[in-house]
Design a protein around this nucleic acid. Structure first.
Lengths: 344, 344
DNA sequence: CTGAAAGCGCTTACAG
DNA sequence: CTGAAAGCGCTTACAG
């Protein structure tokens, strides 16, 4: 910048004014500066600008995610990017692989990079750190999960309500024994979905059999095994609700293996690729991660422009029931039904 | 930092030494500084550090991608992240949606943010800008595509060779008429794959019928239509090579619609989700975007540590043929075969 | 409309 | 082992 000023024969401040398109610059001076800029191939240094300028320009946003290669987080990222780009923000991101230590280290690095805001997708346990940072004035938005004891804005899916609706639907089809395959119950979304399942059975006077509630089967292989076991057991279920995409994948694999895909109903949480091309097509509760990212971005921009409000905002993004073939399968041997037994 | 120095009763330089874990610091002084740091909740400002320190610490890497929500680019990102994290790098990324203007604007913003290196996945046309930047000393790595006239390191897939191998395989099965469905021919990867297809037919003395070469059908709907048209035409092909994941998806949809999925062979470029669960399972040429990202990261780190070399490095990441059911389907009415006609 | 001075939070030589 | 000075590239008041 000094070189530009020298070449144009003006002061630093004048160069600054031209670069930032400020008022009160004579055409002649502006012209000289512009020429010097192109001749020298000068590019302003944003780091220096941010350092010198008033704080919180909203130019840099930190995004902490479990895994950048996961479709869910990638879609959140994209939603975040699309809303914050309007303000010229850049996103600096990192993956944690759900490791609390890496998460904490990443958040600290981001803070040291002086990001103007932080979006955490599926926080694992940096509550204390985040609380300090929030108190310090940094806007923080949590996506997908609630954070214990940290007063931050949140964006979550309708985990419980949508699961309940899907299971009620299976009940209405006449299914008496509906299994639930869920993930790690230390995770809030997983417990919410289980709660939704139980509420559905409770509301429809369904059978709450502990043998049908299988949790902590969050990967494909274990879901496949669990499904095999369920279907070969005594009093096998006639329908299965799978609470995660990976579980759904495992269950589908087992169903196809056993040739039972046409007579066991399946409803999954999370959209999966080729859900419509598979045979039977598979019914799912579809989350909207892109929208979640958008909302997170909006919340962040709101905080950035209005720093007075201190009460956290909770946002729920509705998941959508996509009814396809697998969720319309009726029980093979229809149960005798009592009036009002299966409707809520 | 000044506050810390004051509280600990030492100079700025001493605080700096402790923060950076330098030698020659007495235990007592270090202890006092550390206490002051925790008491004040001090966090060093990396921006200021980078500004003041010698250039190119390799701490910030810019990643320009077409779409963060796309699995391919997300996997590249993850590979890049995993290799560069070892050096403590942070990645600042943005999507371009294949818009050259947005790409250029993003690259400029990244340069102004003084990233220490740039990775561009599927560059659209910022050759001139990048060439200047490379001349200026910024390491640039291009992933997935070659860049005309810009001497940067590149990481690409074996587009041509792997396509050729897959089509030769179809020839060996006895297919005489093999269709090619490809994407936008302005894109280098697309032309490479078409070239591979032609080479395969040429090498096996196969029939090169222009009617069987359909390009610029890069989205699902158009691929579906094109497939319908191909299969209902006179002299329909008995096998189809689809040169992109979205095209493969469209073709599968059409095949299932027409009930032809069991008698028309299909080989696709790009792995697709549920390729094994579909019926028939689908044969594909699988790229390894994660590995591509890793290589890109390594090339970048090499450049960063050794700035002397100036010749660009070209890296090819081999794609893998995954033989499954759809690619093993033999022609319905086997063609009469002449000796040496279909082997290369 | 234009500019000289001080400062953002750090680091680099250079002295002691 | 410790520190005072100058500087990284910019911006903010404040004068003219």
């Amino acid at each position: 910048m000094g070189d530009v000023a020298a070449r144009a024969g003006v002061s630093l401040k004048s160069v600054s004014r031209v670069v930032n398109a400020e008022q009160h610059v004579s055409a002649d001076l502006a012209e000289r500066v512009r020429r010097a800029i192109t001749e020298l191939g000068y590019r302003p240094d944003r780091r220096a600008r941010d350092l010198a300028a008033a704080p919180a320009s909203g130019r840099l946003i930190g995004y902490v995610q479990v895994d950048a290669a996961n479709l869910f987080f990638a879609a959140v990222y994209r939603g975040l990017e699309d809303t914050t780009r309007t303000r010229g923000s850049l996103i600096i991101a990192g993956s944690t692989d759900a490791d609390p230590e890496r998460e904490t280290a990443l958040i600290e690095t981001l803070i040291e990079s002086r990001v103007d805001g932080l979006v955490i997708a599926a926080a694992e346990g940096s509550d204390e750190l985040l609380r300090r940072e929030i108190a310090h004035g940094t806007p923080v938005v949590c996506v997908d999960r609630l954070l214990a004891n940290a007063p931050c804005d949140t964006v979550v899916s309708s985990n419980r309500d949508s699961t309940r609706a899907a299971v009620v639907h299976l009940r209405e089809l006449g299914h008496a024994r509906i299994a639930f395959l869920g993930g790690d119950q230390r995770v809030w979304t997983a417990t919410e979905r289980l709660a939704g399942y139980r509420e559905a059975l409770h509301n429809t006077a369904g059978e709450l059999d502990p043998d049908l509630e299988i949790v902590d089967v969050g990967d494909v292989a274990r879901a496949t095994q669990a499904t095999r076991r369920l279907l070969t057991a005594q009093r096998a279920p006639t329908a299965i609700f799978t609470a995660q995409d990976r579980i759904t994948t495992g269950t589908i694999t087992a169903l196809h293996e056993l040739g039972r895909q046409y007579d066991v109903a399946l409803f999954g949480f999370d959209e999966i690729p080729f859900s419509e091309q598979l045979n039977p097509s598979v019914s799912v509760v579809a989350q909207d991660p892109y929208e979640m990212g958008r909302r997170a971005g909006q919340l962040l921009l709101n905080r950035l422009s209005d720093r007075s409000s201190t009460t956290p905002v909770q946002t729920v993004v509705e998941a959508t029931l996509r009814h396809r073939q697998s969720g319309q399968i009726v029980p093979l041997a229809p149960q005798p039904r009592t009036e009002g037994d299966d409707r809520c």
